[in-house]
């Protein structure tokens, strides 16, 4: 469990995080979303005590991170960029971390095996691909068998097999009752993995809700209908509160009317329908609806 309590963080004259409060609960995968520069990484760094908040506090497993006698057994973290010396082997990197908590050599071999790096563990990590580096970072995060796992952009550089493996791992960790917080800019990746999402924009909390709820609150669901007489159907559906789009000659996108209504209208006028689907808004759309202002604000600042 991570409790973020009214946390603000200032870097020079810029607020990276402002008055953020949220609780990340165990037993589910929480996605941590937000445009670049929205304060995700700053927040994660404060959770593990690398940065200290300008005001407010962050508790993990009931205490400030640095107050845990064996912090790696409470929290494991993969933070942005690679935290491995290029001249050191993967095994030596993990052994150095393990030595701080007197974890056994066997535990190092276990996490190497878990992330599939056993074969290359003796090689200098400077020659690792981005994906191998990520796997090593995940191994380091899991070294202490922690109750809370933080992963910043873990899917970066993983191949499709690796992404599938990662999803399974995140699910397994959550099912074991751990707190799992995963940041990502790959929204599609989140849609397939997260149960709950926390969305930041300009350092402020925009949403803290189950994924399904966020999706429902975003853009309205649209009905996609394909018909050889699409143009005729378009005139029939035209009415107050209904928005019509036509991405292709024989396809209509209908907002403001349900699939049932569209189907009834088509049947009443004898218009053949070849396809009739309710399209849920994508996470991208929901995300854009939430963060639109935040993104524009940032872009405006950059232009100036």
């Amino acid at each position: 469990m991570i409790e973020i309590q009214d946390v603000s963080k200032r870097h020079g004259d810029r607020w990276a995080v402002r008055e953020l409060s949220c609780t990340v609960r165990p037993g589910r995968v929480t996605g941590f979303l937000g445009p670049n520069g929205s304060g995700k990484s700053s927040t994660l760094r404060m959770v593990v005590g690398l940065d200290s908040p300008t005001s407010g506090r962050v508790l993990v497993e009931g205490r400030r991170y640095a107050e845990h006698p064996a912090p790696l057994t409470r929290v494991g973290a993969l933070l942005e960029a690679r935290g491995v010396h290029p001249g050191r082997s993967a095994r030596a990197h993990l052994q150095a971390l393990a030595a701080t908590h007197r974890f056994s050599r066997r535990r190092v071999e276990e996490v190497l095996e878990l992330v599939g790096l056993t074969e290359v563990a003796h090689r200098r990590s400077g020659g690792f691909s981005l994906g191998m580096g990520q796997r090593l970072g995940i191994a380091a995060a899991l070294l202490g068998d922690p109750a809370t796992v933080l992963l910043d952009e873990p899917a970066n550089g993983l191949d499709p097999d690796g992404v599938r493996w990662l999803r399974g791992l995140l699910r397994q960790l959550a099912d074991e009752g751990r707190t799992v917080l995963v940041s990502s800019h790959l929204l599609a990746e989140m849609a397939g993995t997260a149960d709950h999402v926390v969305v930041l924009g300009r350092g402020r909390l925009l949403a803290d809700a189950p994924l399904a709820e966020l999706l429902a609150s975003g853009a309205r669901p649209a009905v996609r209908v394909r018909s050889p007489r699409a143009r005729e159907l378009r005139d029939l559906l035209h009415g107050p509160g209904v928005v019509l789009g036509s991405p292709a000659e024989d396809v209509l996108l209908v907002e403001g009317a349900s699939a049932e209504q569209v189907g009834e209208v088509a049947r009443a006028h004898g218009v053949p329908v070849h396809e009739l689907v309710t399209e849920q808004p994508s996470l991208e759309e929901a995300f854009a609806a939430l963060t639109g202002d935040a993104v524009e604000f940032d872009a405006g600042r950059v232009r100036r």
Binding site: L72, L79, A81, R82, V84
Partner: peptide
């Protein structure tokens, strides 16, 4: 080198004091 190579993050996460 801890800071230039980026290992400082894992080092000081393991030893937060």
């Amino acid at each position: 080198g801890e800071f230039s190579a980026g290992t400082a993050r894992s080092t000081f996460t393991a030893v937060p004091r």
